[in-house]
Design a protein around this nucleic acid. Structure first.
Lengths: 243, 243
DNA sequence: GAGTGGTCTAGACCACGAG
DNA sequence: TCGTGGTCTAGACCACTCA
């Protein structure tokens, strides 16, 4: 027997899917919905929590519950084929980049295979669709591979791309580890997603022909809007032309 | 200010991490914990829900809340390098396979690029670690590529692997799309995971040199125990030998 | 200040598991 | 039957947003 929570969640989902409540619109107040469905407020809130975890509804404290606008799905393309493999390489997404110099520590040292204290440049990338944050990337490059000009703050995204492309010719291998987890509270607030909405994380390690790690990236893609695509070609046939 | 729920979740997490409650053990009854923390039962249950979504605690109706044994992490290796790319290609995992003949319909037709009604062989694979289900895979192969002997039911997993390996020489491309979502109720009960624990799904499409899709797979890997790893080599250097 | 969601209470009653 | 978790109630009180 379905619980009241699921019945209500199902009904609200239906009201959204059929357009009776439209994207961007506010849902009736929780108190109204509770009396409409003749349940207590915790029960109604549990139903909303289901929709929230599905990414259908966004709760805003003090304002109301809103139907999320359907998000442009982004596809992360693996293997470093597009530009530097950033999910942001898509149209309609703008990217803000913050560049910082840091020193390697903790898991960054093993990821980049450098010793603790090595100087790294961190690119903190936040892609937006319109005004909404969309995905998050932290890219690390050893400082000596980054032209000094790169550190002028807040360069357009293309600047970062171009810089990383210069590293391209000797690249040998891209290693990408994909995992799923819940967002950290910080990520959840940066990306404006629910703590219950799982994120896809990609840990990328790019190595050149001499075995040096020239770039590492930690990507965080909200699960409701992102896929990752990996294509492996076999060497037996002619390499298919890449777009 | 942290909520009581989070405080309690944090404390219980700590009790588990430090071994004060050991893997496999039952937690004190919810009523006991509630009085211990001086909160109401819903509040305590919310705290447990947090741990459950993290995969730390397993709730069993009528019996109690149990600390999950640390799961062997499995790594799905992309690109069809290991055997047929099954996550189950790891030690300590046994796999049960059910083989069925079905007719292509819905999204299977586009995934395999066949017309509706085409005959397919479905391999339903469930991998286990000990007695616990671990991950789920549905593999589809056009019937004419499957030797008749393959349909003898409940072959050992190696049998399926060997069969698929015969298709190997003309393979040209493996395309893998990785997504995150919540499990369906059916998947949740098959895998014995919480409905709130996100799963990593992989949609794999293997194409031969003539452009025919010789295999498609839908994999479901619980996010608390699975990663996926993709390695791309660039043609500029000698191909590194594969194990 | 009015309206909204966020958290919590102190129970009630039901469903499942084991003896 | 008893102990367990699962669901739900009918409120209370707090925090946030906006006028």
């Amino acid at each position: 027997m379905p619980s009241r929570r699921d019945t209500i969640a199902h009904d609200l989902r239906d009201r959204i899917a059929t357009g009776r409540i439209k994207p961007g619109e506010r849902l009736p107040a929780e108190a109204h919905l509770a009396s409409e469905y003749r349940v207590s407020t915790p029960t109604l809130r549990n139903a909303l929590a289901v929709l929230q975890a599905e990414g259908l509804v966004e709760k805003v404290h003090g304002k109301g519950n809103f139907v999320r606008r359907p998000l442009q799905r982004i596809t992360y393309v693996g293997g470093g084929r597009t530009a530097n493999g950033q999910p942001a390489a898509h149209a309609a997404l703008s990217v803000t980049v913050h560049t910082t110099r840091i020193q390697a520590r903790g898991h960054l040292t093993s990821l980049l295979k450098v010793s603790t204290g090595s100087r790294l440049t961190e690119f903190l990338c936040l892609s937006h669709e319109g005004e909404r944050p969309h995905s998050l990337a932290r890219i690390y490059v050893p400082c000596d591979l980054v032209p000094a000009a790169a550190l002028r703050e807040s360069l357009p995204y293309e600047g970062v791309m171009k810089r990383l492309l210069r590293l391209r010719p000797p690249l040998a291998e891209v290693r990408e580890q994909v995992s799923v987890r819940l967002p950290t509270p910080q990520e959840a607030s940066t990306l404006r997603i629910s703590l219950a909405l799982a994120v896809l994380t990609i840990k990328r390690q790019t190595t050149d022909t001499r075995g040096r790690v020239v770039e590492a990236a930690l990507l965080v893609l909200p699960g409701d809007r992102a896929d990752a695509l990996f294509t492996t070609h076999y060497p037996t046939d002619e390499r298919t032309p890449e777009k």
